[in-house]
Design a protein around this nucleic acid. Sequence first.
DNA 1: GATGAATGAGCCTTCATTCAT
DNA 2: TATGAATGAAGGCTCATTCAT
Lengths: 206, 206, 206, 206
Amino acid sequence: MTESQTLQRIHEQAVEEFLEKGFRGASLREIVKKLGVTTGAFYGYYKSKESLFDALVEPHARKLAEIYATKLNEFNALPQEQQIAMMSAFSKAGILDMYAYAKDHRDAFRLILLASEGTRWENYIHDLVKKEFESTHQFYEMIQQEGQRALNPTLSHILVSGMFSSFFELIIHEIPEEEGLRCVEELYAFYMAGWRRLFHLPGDQV
Amino acid sequence: MTESQTLQRIHEQAVEEFLEKGFRGASLREIVKKLGVTTGAFYGYYKSKESLFDALVEPHARKLAEIYATKLNEFNALPQEQQIAMMSAFSKAGILDMYAYAKDHRDAFRLILLASEGTRWENYIHDLVKKEFESTHQFYEMIQQEGQRALNPTLSHILVSGMFSSFFELIIHEIPEEEGLRCVEELYAFYMAGWRRLFHLPGDQV
Amino acid sequence: MTESQTLQRIHEQAVEEFLEKGFRGASLREIVKKLGVTTGAFYGYYKSKESLFDALVEPHARKLAEIYATKLNEFNALPQEQQIAMMSAFSKAGILDMYAYAKDHRDAFRLILLASEGTRWENYIHDLVKKEFESTHQFYEMIQQEGQRALNPTLSHILVSGMFSSFFELIIHEIPEEEGLRCVEELYAFYMAGWRRLFHLPGDQV
Amino acid sequence: MTESQTLQRIHEQAVEEFLEKGFRGASLREIVKKLGVTTGAFYGYYKSKESLFDALVEPHARKLAEIYATKLNEFNALPQEQQIAMMSAFSKAGILDMYAYAKDHRDAFRLILLASEGTRWENYIHDLVKKEFESTHQFYEMIQQEGQRALNPTLSHILVSGMFSSFFELIIHEIPEEEGLRCVEELYAFYMAGWRRLFHLPGDQV
DNA sequence: GATGAATGAGCCTTCATTCAT
DNA sequence: TATGAATGAAGGCTCATTCAT
């Protein structure tokens, strides 16, 4: 069953309004007014402004987190030597999977990135960063050799943060499939080279 | 004469409220209530909620942009060979200067980064990214050798974006001076290595 | 369909409040409180205090100005001799038409006359006076005979001003139809006699 | 002793502000701000906004009412035949005296006429009109001859109202002494002729 | 005389939400 | 499904006025 036409139009208009003014600045009455329907109509579909935002964001936010978690688990399940050989949860396959999903649901991630202040999604990216940060350190500790200095947590935090920022810039902007993929690969290579040096690992073929 | 005590307390409380709820979500009444004064008292100091935000942000936002612009101009004034030797406007000296300033005025940049939606500062970081992006391409064109491929603008955009994100993470969080400096240097080295590869330049000592 | 009962009650109460306190002194909250509704209810009908005032005033103000302009145009279209014979745009037919309309929409004109300070209607009467003043002088110039002195513009201004004041006093106060009409006629005769003398015209039968 | 310079400047600025925005719309803080002083300074001179308006208006409003009353009393003290011979309380001498005073204190009367809504002076003109109306009727009753119709009170009210409007237009506008006087005389003649007809009196030399 | 910080009440307006129809 | 009138709370802001200095 496809969603009702009214519902679909609400979604489209809501995305526009939220992106333009942010969750807090967006006006429900403005959304429905532009659609030529009334607030009552809206409340037949959702019970609040927040639940509308949620409906737009939640499925895709969850799915992306799942993709990330799945790849991470697969990686963690590998024997240690293989982990070293393939490196990092944010491995090529993982980032490509994430990109493949996110690029098809741009609006949801735009909302998270650009309009989620005041919702439960305002920390979504931070949470992703945190998980990646933790898995990075876990990995480093595993491969850390005697006498090697600890990984500077502040440094790794800001690097992971920048990495995700770069990645999501690719989602925010409308970029043709092919070029997007190329950029993801280059972004991956860019960071991988940097990480390997920080990890005291020899360069590898990615 | 130093600023009145009430004004100072308004500043402190405002920073807290803005950071917690964003510019739009922040309530002037809430700010003054926590101070134990009335809205009228506030309007003796500022003529609007926006002008309060501005007062907190503008001087430091301007100064940082100046520091950036100054370094960029200095770099552009260099003869071509020296530019190549020292590379990129976001060079080590520049980024250190910016850090030295920004770390002393964390609140202003936190406000820009975390609470500026709905103000004229909401594009501040984007604008910095854009300038850096342009100067990067300008530099690349200068050094581009025959037969070399153009720099992928999408890639460079997302990298610059990530670089600034990393940098400002350092500002957002309270980090001891010494460690902050170390991170800036490492961040610089991390990116410089990546850029040099993209620019087809030999590695250098930074 | 007739206007909603709430809207009608808003109108009635607004007229009362505006007349009592003037546009500036009137309080929207007071108006709705007396109606037993909330301010939100009001803003379902009008988008501002000014637009409420406008809705009460505009249609009738415009119509009266039209009636005046129409009569004036008719008069100006007459051949010169006939104009002299019938005299002045503020002629009997015109003033009677204006009275017939205005007496049925007293509230609108009361608002203009007694409560319009701070609105775009505050100069409505002055503008009418100005138009009549100009048409009066135009007429005088047409009939002016060689050697006759010019009409004193200050004098004619204050007379026109007084004439309109008298006329609108009739509108402000609740006066039975029949008596109102008689007064308009007498007012007309009163002024006509005076003007004819100033114009050096022989008395006429009006 | 002349008034302090600050006080004088308050007066000048207040007149300007009141005339521009009306009593209700005028802002005390705006007045003092333009003067470069503080509200505290103002409250050293007056105890309220209303009392400032009063100070500007009251002396001249009272004086003009006195001039009017004095002339009226003088007239009423005359024997009946003389009253008939000279006619009307608003006689030539009276109106000239009023003009002589009012023209020298334009600002006070401008305030009454244009900016008194919300003050105790908002009915000043109406009150003058009322007194004149009463004295007119009193006079008419005295001279009324058997079989003559009563003076239509509505008509006389609107005529008196118009007469005062004309008169005060002369005060509102800055008019050179000589021309103002001429206009008063002509205004007097204009109305006198009309009244005489309504009173069934023969024309006279004015 | 004058300052200037502060009050407290009030203003117009907008909002998400409800509910009888 | 949808209407649309209404709620009640909150918002930013301005005002005349006070008072310790």
